[in-house]
Design a protein around this nucleic acid. Structure first.
Length: 377
RNA sequence: GGGAGCGUUCCCGAGUGGCCAAAGGGGGCAGACUGUAAAUCUGUUGUCGACGACUUCGGUGGUUCGAAUCCACCCGCUCCCA
């Protein structure tokens, strides 16, 4: 179920519901827990404390370890993690990009050399759907090829044509699996993924094609993988008018706070990105004045919170100086607190975007924050 | 008392006549990170008016065109024997 409550220009304020959890308010940021955990030592319980509405895990990683059959035996991903909210699983398509040195693509699918032990793993549309069925996620992503930018036109053309054929196979396999009596999550949704690199004609053609394959939502993939930010915005500008209006739209793997505001402005409803968690682990923290590196010497004696404008559990209790010390001393707590802060920041950013949309003031919000939040302080 | 070593830039530690402002770690300082092979990776770390110059390798002298590297003495430390 997806419902648009109101719009402001291309931006959409909506509600979404799936098999688990209550209503998801969109635009929403999905917190990334690739292997069933948020890196930085957070559990699903912690996610509740940082205003996370929906969590994301990864097909490829959980298939390798502990194995999707194991997850199924444990009652599915929700039960294993003790998370009763919505879960989206990425299909493994991004690993076709990120493990490019370790894989081979054919029409059937992709053969990976496991990054763990080198053993050969085959994954095609059917396998990806089967694994995601075993995980029991609420949203399964179609198996696609995420192509690095820039890439030659001919290659991108052939690749996105193949990704379209893969989507058709995903659709069939997914229906089939959900119809089985032993299906862990018969209400699991399937989102298709738009590709086409930086070529507007391919992007539009591909979106028109996948829009004909009945999906529960449509994602834009293959962005923020090498092209300039302006190019990404241009692609969104041309492709989103071709996405079904009544279905959720998900911009995969993006991005910075500014990228998110600009994405919402162009009509995106769902986002996910490793950036807030990874940057947090590396000491880069987001604030309403821009980002800062908490490891910098200037915070050595700073008794203030990370962000005076933040009311997250970390800012309520701990000083910049303490955080800096924990980082310098390489205490695990440093990463945990930093990740909690950054995810709270992202979830709060989405909340404020929604509030602005509700008030019909998103344009003003964008003008005030879009550029500012990506600056360094 | 006798014998054997050692002392290098913030720390540890290479270097034993010119290619040495001096390897490599650590620490420090800074940067990167966008559907997570990332608690990772990169740069930098003697001084200065800085594509060049100057001062460093326990101290003081000396040998040499040239010394962190060789010699003498001194200072400090370690170990072994008595």
């Amino acid at each position: 179920m997806f419902e648009i409550i109101r719009t402001e220009g291309h931006a959409r304020r909506g509600r979404f519901r799936c098999a688990h959890g209550g209503e998801v308010q969109t635009p929403v940021f999905m917190n990334v827990g690739t292997q069933g955990a948020i890196k930085g030592a957070l559990s699903a319980h912690d996610l509740k404390d940082i205003k996370c509405q929906i969590e994301l895990s990864n097909t490829y990683h959980l298939h390798l370890r502990p194995g999707d059959q194991v997850v199924r035996s444990l009652g599915g991903l929700h039960k294993m993690m003790d998370w009763d909210g919505p879960i989206l699983t990425d299909s493994g398509g991004f690993q076709v990009f990120s493990l490019s040195g370790l894989r081979k693509i054919t029409e059937e699918g992709v053969t990976f050399a496991s990054h763990i032990d080198g053993r050969r793993i085959f994954m095609g549309p059917e396998e990806s759907m089967q694994i995601q069925a075993n995980l029991g996620s609420d949203i399964a992503m179609a198996f696609d090829e995420c192509v690095e930018n820039p890439a030659p036109y001919e290659y991108v053309k052939q690749s996105c044509e193949r990704t379209l054929r893969w989507l058709v196979r995903c659709r069939e396999e997914h229906r089939c699996l959900c119809a089985r009596p032993d299906c862990l999550n018969p209400a699991q949704m399937l989102f298709g993924i738009n590709q086409g690199g930086t070529y507007e004609d391919l992007r539009v053609w591909h979106m028109d094609q996948i829009a004909r394959v009945d999906c529960d939502g449509y994602a834009v993939g293959g962005l923020a993988v090498g092209e300039a930010t302006e190019v990404m915005y241009r692609i969104l500008d041309v492709v989103l008018p071709h996405a079904p209006e009544d279905k959720p739209r998900y911009l995969m793997g993006v991005g910075t706070p500014s990228n998110i505001i600009e994405g919402v402005w162009r009509g995106i409803d769902f986002f996910d990105c490793v950036m807030p968690a990874r940057n947090a682990r590396h000491g880069k923290l987001f604030t309403w004045q821009g980002s800062l590196n908490i490891k910098n010497e200037k915070y050595k004696l700073d008794t203030g919170p990370i962000d005076p404008a933040c009311s997250c559990p970390v800012c309520r209790s701990f000083s910049r100086a303490y955080l800096r010390h924990l980082f310098k001393a390489e205490e695990m707590l440093a990463m945990r607190l930093a990740v909690m802060h950054n995810l709270w920041f992202y979830n709060t950013l989405m909340e404020r975007i929604r509030d602005a949309l509700d008030a019909g003031e998103f344009a003003a919000f964008r003008a005030e924050y879009s550029e500012k939040l990506d600056r360094k302080v």
